[in-house]
Every structure is written in structure tokens, then in C-alpha cells.
Measured scan of single mutants.
Amino acid sequence: DLSALRVEEVQNVINAMQKILECPICLELIKEPVSTKCDHIFCKFCMLKLLNQKKGPSQCPLCKNDITKRSLQESTRFSQLVEELLKIICAFQLDTGLEYANSYNFAKKENNSPEHLKDEVSIIQSMGYRNRAKRLLQSEPENPSLQETSLSVQLSNLGTVRTLRTKQRIQPQRTSVYIELGSDSSEDTVNKATYCSVGDQELLQITPQGTRDEISLDSAKKAACEFSETDVTNTEHHQPSNNDLNTTEKRAAERHPEKYQGSSVSNLHVEPCGTNTHASSLQHENSSLLLTKDRMNVEKAEF
């Protein structure tokens, strides 16, 4: 173990290094160091905050020279020094078990990766560091076993998940096959086929009936047209017969005018059967003409 005197000496050296690497504005270890034209180094955030307070150039807090945003430059070497100082402080805390008085939040800088452990060898070769390295080497064999167990647990979990997924996939297939086998029997399929065939026959029977009705309507229309044509021909046949009657009536009127007047009046009210309204109107006109002729003949006879 380190003596108290040596611990104090190391602590004083760390404090001196820390004062050199402090920012003059925030009085902390410089984060993202930036250098000016006057070779003074500050935190990048502190300098941008200072420049944004005034429009135009501002003055350096140490030498009062003008500073602009374009004049600022990043210093990589200074950032490396800060990183190495942080590593020294971490090693000091691990070796002594004491917390550094002016320690900052170094938890963000710590890294437990194997590459980081290899890099620590180049920091300080001390008894405390050696003991700590031995402890780490002793704890390393235990870690692979834990990793193997965790991997086995994960693989077993994956296997159970896969088996569950396969079961879920197989179950719908089985149910679907069961439904297909038990849903419709052979008799049901035959009945469905016969039902479809009967429906098709009914459709075939319905369509000819409609065509037959249309044919019957067409035949009825044709018969009505033929009947009207026969009526017209009958009226045409009746007209010459009426003319013959008129000639006979004229002759009778010349011989017996008194008797014919009474008979002509009675004939006005008689309509021949089986004739249309057109034929009756023609008869009325003929009878009126005959009456006028008879009157003329009677007057001539009187004179």
C-alpha cells in the first residue's frame, strides 16, 4: 500500500496539472479547448457565450486583445492532455480508494470495455495498479461463464418462442383441414349439385314461356288486323247491294208514291245487322237523297 506522504505528493502534482488545464472563465477543466490569436485557451462554450454578448469583436479576458469567431481554432494537443489527466485522476481514485477533492464528473469518461483496460497499462506502473489488474484478471474467467449461461438462457427462450410460433402455425392448418373434411358430406355435395341443376332447368323453362307469350301476342295482333281488313271488305261488298236497293226503291216510288213515303220513313230507323257505323252513315245519306228525289217527283206529278 501507498504511504500517506506519497499520496499527498501525487495529489499535489495532480492539482498543479489541473490548474494549468483549467479554463480562466469557468475555472474547470477545459472541455473542447479553443485557442485565440494571443495563444490563450478557453472552453469553446465559454468563448461563444462571451462573443454573443456583444456585437462585433470582444476582448480576451487575459490580455484584452480583440477576439472574433473566425480567429478561434481548435487545439487537439490540449484536448489530449486533458484526457490523460482524467485517466490519471481515475487511476488515483481506484488505487487509494479516496475521492479526489477537486474531482469532476468523471463517470462519463469511464469505460469498462476490454480495449480501455489494455490502455490503462500505459498509465502508471504502481503496486495498487498491479493489484487491481490481478483482481480484474481473476474476475475475467467468471465473466465468460456468466456470458455462457446468459447465452444458453437466451437460446432456450428463443427455442420456446420458436416452438410456440410453430404450434400457432400448425393449429390453424389443422382446424382448416378439419373444417374441410367435416363441413360438407358427400350427400350434401350431391344435393347441392341437384339443386343447381334444377335451378338451371327452371331458368331454361322460364325463358321459352316468355317467348311463347310474345308469339301469342303477335298472333293476336295479326288476327285483329285481319279482322279489321275483313270488316272493310264487308262494308265494300254491302255498298253495291245498297245501291241495288236504292234503284228498286226509286222504281217503286215512281209507281206508288204514297205507299213509299211511309216505308221510307220506317227504313230510316232500321239498321242492317253486321255493318259498322260507317255503313250506317252512308245509308242515312242515301235515304235522305231518296226522300228529296221522291218529293221532286211528287211535285212534278201535281203540276
Rank of each mutant, 00 (worst) to 15 (best):
T235I: 12
H269Q: 02
E74K: 02
R162S: 15
T76K: 14
P57S: 11
K192R: 04
N65K: 11
N243I: 07
L5R: 09
L203W: 07
K44N: 04
Q138R: 02
T211I: 05
A91D: 02
A252T: 06
Q173R: 14
D213Y: 08
A107V: 08
Q11L: 14
P57T: 00
T76A: 08
G159R: 01
N52S: 06
K109R: 13
E120G: 13
G274S: 08
N131S: 01
L21S: 04
E9D: 03
L29S: 02
T207A: 10
E83A: 10
S3Y: 04
I41L: 15
D294Y: 07
N297K: 05
D66A: 03
V190D: 15
S152T: 11
K54T: 09
A107E: 07
S156P: 14
V121G: 14
V34A: 02
R255G: 11
N191S: 05
R77I: 13
P208T: 08
R135K: 07
R162K: 13
N267Y: 09
L72I: 01
F78I: 15
D213N: 01
K64E: 04
K64R: 15
G274V: 01
V190A: 10
T194I: 12
S197C: 00
C46G: 03
S264C: 12
E148V: 06
V121L: 12
S3T: 13
K49N: 01
A101V: 06
I67V: 06
V198A: 09
A16G: 03
D218Y: 07
S139I: 11
N111T: 07
Q283H: 12
L29V: 02
Q138L: 13
P141L: 07
E140G: 12
T160A: 11
Y195C: 09
N102K: 07
S197G: 12
E32A: 02
I30N: 07
E32V: 04
V298A: 00
G182R: 04
L203V: 15
E83K: 03
C38S: 00
N15Y: 15
D200N: 13
K293N: 07
S75C: 15
H116Q: 12
S176F: 00
Y260S: 15
E236V: 04
A224T: 14
K167R: 08
G262V: 03
D95Y: 00
E99A: 01
K222M: 12
Y129N: 05
T247A: 06
V270L: 00
R174T: 12
Q59R: 03
D119Y: 02
T163S: 13
V153I: 03
L158F: 08
M127K: 13
E140V: 01
V232I: 09
Q168H: 12
T36R: 00
F106Y: 13
T230S: 02
L245S: 12
T233K: 09
D95N: 00
A16V: 01
E187V: 08
F42C: 00
Q59K: 03
R70M: 03
E229Q: 12
G159E: 10
E299Q: 05
L155I: 02
F106L: 12
L155P: 14
E214V: 04
L48P: 04
K69I: 06
K300N: 08
S241N: 02
E142K: 11
F106C: 14
D1Y: 11
A224G: 05
T163N: 09
E110A: 02
S75N: 15
T275I: 02
E84V: 04
H284L: 03
P144R: 13
C38R: 00
S103N: 03
K222N: 10
S139R: 11
R6L: 05
P57A: 15
V190L: 03
R255M: 00
D213A: 13
E22K: 02
F92V: 01
E258D: 02
K118N: 10
V265F: 11
I89F: 05
F42I: 02
Y104H: 01
K259N: 12
E202D: 07
S219C: 15
M17V: 02
L181F: 11
S79T: 06
R77K: 08
S139T: 11
N243Y: 14
S183F: 04
L245F: 11
L21V: 13
E142V: 06
E142G: 11
K69Q: 15
I124F: 07
E8D: 10
N105T: 06
L2F: 03
L137I: 10
N267K: 05
P272S: 14
